[in-house]
Design a protein around this nucleic acid. Structure first.
Lengths: 213, 213, 213, 213
DNA sequence: CATGAATGAGTATTCATTCAT
DNA sequence: AATGAATGAATACTCATTCAT
């Protein structure tokens, strides 16, 4: 049951990358997360990987390219985490599906809070072309949430909420946790996921509301 | 009847600062929000204020000192916005008070989303001493929310929620919106505040929940 | 008998200067002596005199002009100290005159070691024209020594030494002491002057020498 | 039979330094000697070595570090020049040993007058730690002279002079010459050394003195 | 006379990147 | 593949000097 011995950062990179390149990306994630993209030097990244400053350029075209690889692979991995094999098809109805999507989204961001910080806060350092590519992937996330919400509303299982606003709120909860989550805190990624899934459900439930007078 | 002709950034600075110093802070807020602290040059800030690069040092000790002044004044202003004169004393009960605190918190962050971005995302560039000073101010925010939540729970007007987790979620919603809020979007700061106040209330309401079986 | 209560630096400036200008020169001497001309800022000089940075330019044309005034007045004062009223005319013969010149030269440099350091080590920062003016004054010093030595040699009262080389050695002794002299050391300026006068005499005395074989 | 084709500055650095580092030190010596440490820019040093401004930082940590290396190596070399293999052991008695030490000290300073100027006049620009290290080395020089003088006095071969004062005078003669010595002047380093050795001997010889009455 | 504000020209140092080895 | 050396272009900050008040 020792599922979690793997470093949450290292497990993000695929086999298509040379081991040294993966080491560099991992070092870059830690550097970018701590000091930001502009606050990190290529020397920081290289020496963090036990290499000379020039080594980075053997594996990547530029510092920006390193960020792009992190962002691209990070976003794809997060998407995979939501669209698990079998998906939410087997889940009976919108509430269960909302719980599933929210808890997975939150748990992934908690578990990968270091890499996710880079994916959420450093995108503005990307070149326009690279940014475009990432933005295209990112559009999937609100879409996933939106489809669940609208289905629930349409079916009458959710209160008639403004889907766009609720989706933004749900995404905010998942994204902002990379700013404050600490693995040595009280909640495991999965516990936090369950709690936030409860919040999601409460957000789409009818609320007594203030006295309508 | 144009409600707000004043620039939301400029109105943050007090009369104790020379006009030129205020112009510099305003320029710095826009620069830091767009490119981050390390991605901004002192030249960017100065020329953004219509001055020579050296002028910054007539009014501030260093680039970091500029950030500190923004963070200090920004946080104090945000706190003022929550603890308005008269406060929430006249409001009848926890639900109304929760609505008041949440809507003000959210509206302030939406209205001041540019400055707030700097206050939320650039603090790690502060010196340890300056960071300490800001962190001390920041502790007030969760405290304000927590007191409302616990009172509501104690009185039985809220569901028996985990106050710490709920507070973190509420703060997250307010904070993260500085990442995506655009004033030309569909919601005014006040509208967004009301929507998020509704969400806050739903979070502390008993939820039908999944059939407890 | 309280002859020496006056600050040795302040007493260098004449009545033709405004009191504030004298204060600035005094501050400049201390700054230049401690950090060198290039290592001193005009701000150092001004604030050392209790004034704002701009005040310096009310009294002097430039930082270099301050150095020039120090050098000019310093050199003239040193020259005055050697050519005392009555001079060495009343002294009977070259040995007594050599003692007089050397002891005065040394005592002046010891007493004014701070200002003298500036006069000896910072001249290269002067403009060519100003340097010329100072060099012209400086030529008097070796001349004074040389005339005493050559007279002693001609009269047969001194050994047939190479006057040029001896003069350079005597000047060196007087000049270099500004590098190490401390008023709280064992020797008063006058004591040091007497000791170096003895050395001067021994330098022009016939020495047993190494066995001429 | 051209005696010295090697550049007196370049020969100071050891084989442990990369050739480029030696070139930079040589350039720095010339710059520091001419314009002083604070008056020299790192650009001056680098371009004086035929390199770009950034190249200095490939080989040295800072401008101050360059000065430290010059001072450290310069002082050690000067010490070596005095304590030659075989030393003064074979020399018969204090007078010969005094001549040897003084002439070597003077000749070294004359030959290396450019580097020595930096070693003598720019030490105040060193960091406190580096200054300490140099001061420790410097203490050897007066000690070397003092031991010769006191031995001569004790044996009765020198007049009963005040060793401390005489040592300071001898060091002054050697040090101050770096201020005025020019290789194209009348004296070669060795000639000057011999002349100053004569002066040293005369300083410790009984002098007819003024009639003791 | 004195100064607070302002600035053009630096000044030490850094950094992303290249390239010969 | 990896690196030590090298560099052009910054980058935060300084400084001598000016000027309106």
């Amino acid at each position: 049951m020792t599922r979690d011995v793997v470093d949450p950062v290292t497990e993000l990179w695929g086999d298509d990358l040379a081991p040294v390149a993966r080491t560099l990306l991992t070092s870059a994630v830690h550097c970018f997360a701590k000091r930001g993209f502009t606050g990190t030097t290529t020397r920081d990244v290289s020496t963090g990987a036990g290499l000379s400053p020039a080594a980075l350029y053997v594996h990547f075209r530029s510092k920006e390219d390193v960020l792009f690889e992190i962002a691209r692979r990070g976003h794809l991995r997060a998407l995979e985490a939501l669209a698990v094999p079998g998906g939410t098809a087997g889940l009976d109805g919108p509430p269960a599906r909302l719980r599933a999507v929210m808890s997975r989204f939150v748990a992934w961001h908690a578990r990968h809070h270091v890499a996710a910080r880079v994916c959420q806060y450093e995108l503005s350092a990307l070149s326009p072309e690279h940014l475009d590519e990432i933005v295209t992937i990112r559009r999937e996330f609100p879409e996933l949430f939106r489809s669940v919400i609208t289905e629930g509303v349409d079916r009458g299982e959710f209160a008639p909420v403004d889907a766009g606003r609720v989706v933004r709120a749900l995404l905010s909860l998942g994204v902002d946790l990379v700013r404050w989550y600490r693995p040595d805190g009280p909640d495991s990624p999965e516990q936090l996921g369950r709690f936030y899934a409860d919040l999601a459900v409460s957000m789409v439930s009818a609320v007594p509301g203030p006295p309508a007078g």
